[in-house]
Nucleic acid binder design. Structure first.
Lengths: 172, 172
DNA sequence: TTGCTCCTCACGTCACGTGAGGTGGC
DNA sequence: TTGCTCCTCACGTCACGTGAGGTGGC
């Protein structure tokens, strides 16, 4: 038997997540203690394992509930419909990425180059951006349009030498 | 001067979207008619144009509001932070895609091949999936793992000839 | 009169997060 | 007694969508 926080910790979920699953009937604990504490059994644990797995893949809770109610249908419909949804989202994100790159390019050619170096670092600090994410953005930019990327870096005030150094780091 | 539905139609937004923007103070109409109808002026229209543009790129309304309040900061911070966010989302989606493909593969090797042809078409019908999306999924699958894709198609009950025909269609 | 537009609540969505106020267990 | 865990409301998040119930304009 597990208390709510114990079983939550096993799957790295929050207590409120479990409370929510109980409230919508997705995972009702096996029973309650004398004082009303939720008690989860081994079967609950196995059920939660499946829930956490599909949740991690981005499957909506309602579909997970449907599958758990009729497991004989198998996981393929779940997985395929999630694949289709992911595809749509990726397409939308790619379109946005492209439009953003075009706007950055247009911006770069409109204004004269100003020392905007602080923009990126200020932004990074504000958003708590790690070195890793920062490089990932440059990598994306480079992949989408190497030329636009170089222009953008120059626009931010990087010197040619600095740009070459950054690009070398990206290759690793 | 535009009434709410007229200006909404110009930017292909819904009336409730405009009501919401008013309620949060992002776009307050210039004035009201005697009977209380919202009236939007040309300046409102230009403001909404910017809002709709950044919204289309996925920028949160709060950040859009911040930019409109201090346009001298320029659009670069907005665009860059959105780029970073997109990057993170794409990574997460790719991870999910990979995990799903692995699960589909595992599923395929576990069970004996059953005539599951109806799964895809039933799924497509349920989700209102168009022919285009359907092909996009196969394209993604093919790109990620051509071999897994072929196994999966065989698993669904496609014959070798049918698989070859589908793959030819994907190349177009 | 009809059909369309407008108004203001107020609640629903999705998957939780975050207190508030109070109790139980070791 | 202290620190941790548990409980039940109830409200907040994000960007709207969807009625309900009523009025105005052509």
């Amino acid at each position: 038997m597990y208390t709510i926080s114990r079983i939550a910790r096993i799957f790295r979920l929050s207590r409120s997540t479990l409370l929510y699953y109980d409230s919508i009937g997705l995972l009702r604990p096996y029973g309650r203690s004398e004082k009303g504490y939720r008690l989860y059994c081994e079967e609950d644990r196995r059920r939660l394992e499946k829930i956490a797995l599909f949740r991690g893949l981005g499957v909506p809770l309602e579909k997970i509930g449907g599958y758990l109610a009729r497991p004989e249908e198998g996981t393929i419909p779940l997985l395929m419909s999630r694949m289709i949804a992911i595809n749509g989202q990726m397409e939308a994100l790619k379109d946005q990425q492209k439009a953003i790159l075009e706007m950055i390019e247009a911006e770069g050619s409109l204004r004269n180059r100003k020392p905007l170096l602080h923009t990126l670092s200020a932004l990074a600090a504000k958003a708590g951006i790690t070195e890793k994410n920062y490089l990932a953005v440059h990598r994306t930019f480079e992949k989408a349009s190497s030329e636009a990327h170089r222009r953008f870096l120059a626009y931010l005030g990087f010197t040619d030498a600095e740009i070459r150094a950054l690009l070398r780091r990206l290759e690793k």
